[in-house]
Structure formats: C-alpha cells, structure tokens
Design a protein around this nucleic acid. Sequence first.
DNA 1: CTGGGGATGGGGCCC
DNA 2: GGGGCCCCATCCCCA
Length: 268
Amino acid sequence: MPRSFLVKKHFNASKKPNYSELDTHTVIIAPYLYESYPMPVIPQPEILSSGAYSPITVWTTTAPFHAPLPSGLSSLSGYPSSLGRVSPPPSSDTSSKDHSGSESPISDEEERLQSKLSDPHAIEAEKFQCNLCNKTYSTFSGLAKHKQLHCDAQSRKSFSCKYCDKEYVSLGALKMHIRTHTLPCVCKICGKAFSRPWLLQGHIRTHTGEKPFSCPHCNRAFADRSNLRAHLQTHSDVKKYQCKNCSKTFSRMSLLHKHEESGCCVAH
DNA sequence: CTGGGGATGGGGCCC
DNA sequence: GGGGCCCCATCCCCA
C-alpha cells in the first residue's frame, strides 16, 4: 500500500491515465535493473538522464483555454503553489514581511538596511537583491534567474498551463510545471508516476532496498538524505523546533505542529 | 498521543 | 537553458 498521498495512484484502474499519451515522454529504466530486482541496484545516471526520455512538449502560450484535468489528476488542486514556497513559521510576528499588505515598502527597506548595517555578515551573505521584491541572493546568477522567472517579466507572463490556471514567464518554468501533470517518469515495477527522473530514482530505491545514506551515530541507513537528516535530529540533545508556549522542543516541525494542534497552544 | 521512519513534492542553486 | 542535486516541507504509517 503506497503511503504517498501526493503521487497519483495510476495502478487504480478507475483512475488510470492514458499511457499511450505518455508513452513517448516516458522514462524507460533499463530492463536489467528490473531483472536484477530485488538486488540492490543504483540506477546509473545515464539511464535517468535527459537522453533517456523526451522532454514534455505539451504547453500553450497565452492560452485562454484551460482543458479539464485528466481524470487521474483531479486532486492536483491540493498541490502547494509552485511559486509560493511554504516557509517555516516566523520566530515572531514582527519578523514577518507582508509585501502585499499595508506595510510601507519604505520602512521595510529601511528595516533591511538597518539589519545589514548592524550585521556585517548579512552584507556578505545578501550581496544581490531584487529591486522589485527585495529578495536577496548570494550570487548574481541566482538573482538573474529569479528576476527572469518571477519579477522582471511578471507583467509579460505568456506561458499558460493547459491543465490548470498557472502561468509562467519562461518556457522552462512551464515545462517543469507541466511535468507535475503529465508525470512522465513511470516506475516499471509498480506503475507509479513521477514528475522528475530523480524522484523516480529515489522511488526505485524503495523496491531495491538500497539505502546509501548512513547515520554516523548508529547503524541505521536511509534511502533518502532528507530522512537521514530528520533521523540525525533524534541524536541531537537540542531539538530544532520549540513550542512558544511550553518551550518543549521537537525534532521535526511536523511534530511541533501536532503538539500545537493537540492543544498546548490553544491559549492564543 | 507521541516520536520516528518512509515516501514524495517543489523551488533554489550549481554545473 | 536545462538537468541534476540539495534542501525543506509535508503527509502517512507504525511502534
């Protein structure tokens, strides 16, 4: 039973997508990988490289037309915004920035300047700042890419997704987004589909049992680096996430959220 | 109920 | 400009 709620469960016949439509865009994992299953095998990079599958070419430009979602994709409305990363809760209410709201952009800018002046490291770390949204980057290329994708061209968005209402300023961004609809990377073992080759690569580890990320403190190993990182928190005396009310600390934000939802923080 | 492991998504960044 | 990796976030499941 798959645990993921986010990945489309294409092996459910009633929700099976049109594979013939996806066939030409599908990542094909070399048969020997499956022949050797369940032997632990690391998929070779060239197998999953761009040369192994054709890029998605389903997009429209300035398309007023929004096709209905394929039957298997109806749950996509629950996806987090592709442009708005969900940030961890701010340490205090005053630290949060609301660029759309009532806060004066001047005072905001002054605040940032003050903070930089008082912290020389901040100047070093935030050398390149977007003059439109104030977002900062450590490298010029990072800033350039940000402006190209989000700010400078904000007023000339022209690439619309045919599956949903999202619009993008570059073809590359749209192509990346469309993958979340078409899910071109299909696991040949179980039929699960993924938007990116490396997601499929990680998934294949669940079949092979390969766990390349070992904990230096115990003998546990993990298939995913993020899970190792979460595990490392369990070895730490000082947990990263702390309840503002009772000061209890947790190894994961999700545990802190659970704690808060369970009633500790009902006071406010 | 809590803590931890497993699985997965998406944006940012580097090459 | 695109692919791949890194990081963070989130959910489900189970002990």
